[in-house]
Design a protein around this nucleic acid. Structure first.
Length: 233
DNA sequence: CCGAAGATTGCCT
DNA sequence: GGCAATCTTCGGG
């Protein structure tokens, strides 16, 4: 039995298209991860397209590196990156091969393995309050945490029937009329294009946050020059 | 080498 | 709304 009740695993041809076409098509699709702990499945509610080397917001903007190599490979594979010293985010590589296009999975709803997903989210965070079901995979890093996706899954093939991490077609296709789009979250460059797609009104969509540059951390030996403000002591 | 910034999250005021 | 946690990656010197 498949996690989404008999749904078909997504064929590679689905991913062999530009990310802006794949992204809205992924809404309603299911990502399932089978581990020794059990199965967790997430129905996607929010995604973002990244257009590779010509997209200033893409990790592939400055060409191929060790980190982004998977994005230059065949479609249907997972590009996982580590960020902010503590979080993982996952993308699905699109086509054509070599163009480094991908879709970031920003949010979804856990439809199978809710207890396991909650255990994972509680385990690894110093949160004091319980996580609401709808928040379990609401956000790119939360989604990876709920699915237990990390560095070791970089390059995994979601189209391989033998893979522990697989993608399935939507049980009920999400029509174009039910899809909204807008600027991508947290990007400083490339904020002018509306390549973030989500299911209109879905409660498991993340909150929009514009990009904010973090203040440089003060150094004890050589404090950064202040902008004419007072220095507290 | 060194250091700044990051496709984030959660807790603080 | 501000900001700390935490570390990898990449660009600049």
């Amino acid at each position: 039995m498949t996690p989404s009740g008999g749904a078909k695993q997504t064929p590679r041809a689905f991913f062999s298209r530009p990310a802006q076409q794949v992204a809205p098509g992924l809404l309603g699709c299911v990502i399932a991860h089978q581990t020794a702990e059990g199965l967790v499945a997430v129905r996607l509610t929010e995604v973002e397209a990244y257009a590779g080397e010509h997209d200033p917001a893409s990790h592939a903007y400055r060409g191929r590196t060790a980190r982004n190599a998977v994005m230059f490979g065949p479609p249907g594979h997972v590009y996982v990156y580590f960020t902010y010293g503590m979080h993982f985010c996952m993308n699905l590589v699109c086509g054509p091969e070599g163009e480094a296009r991908a879709v970031l999975l920003r949010a979804g709803q856990v439809i199978d393995g809710v207890a396991l997903a909650r255990a994972r989210r509680s385990r690894s965070s110093r949160r004091s309050t319980a996580v609401r079901d709808l928040d379990l995979a609401r956000g790119p890093a939360r989604l990876c945490e709920a699915l237990s996706v990390d560095r070791s899954h970089n390059g995994a093939d979601v189209c391989d029937p033998a893979s522990a991490l697989r993608a399935f077609a939507a049980a009920a296709p999400v029509g174009q009329g039910a899809i909204s789009r807008g600027p991508r979250v947290g990007v400083s460059q490339g904020a002018d294009v509306a390549w973030r797609y989500w299911i209109t009104g879905d409660p498991a969509v993340s909150a929009y946050r514009p990009h904010v540059r973090r203040r440089a951390r003060a150094k004890s030996a050589t404090p950064p020059r202040t902008e004419g403000g007072t220095i507290s002591q």
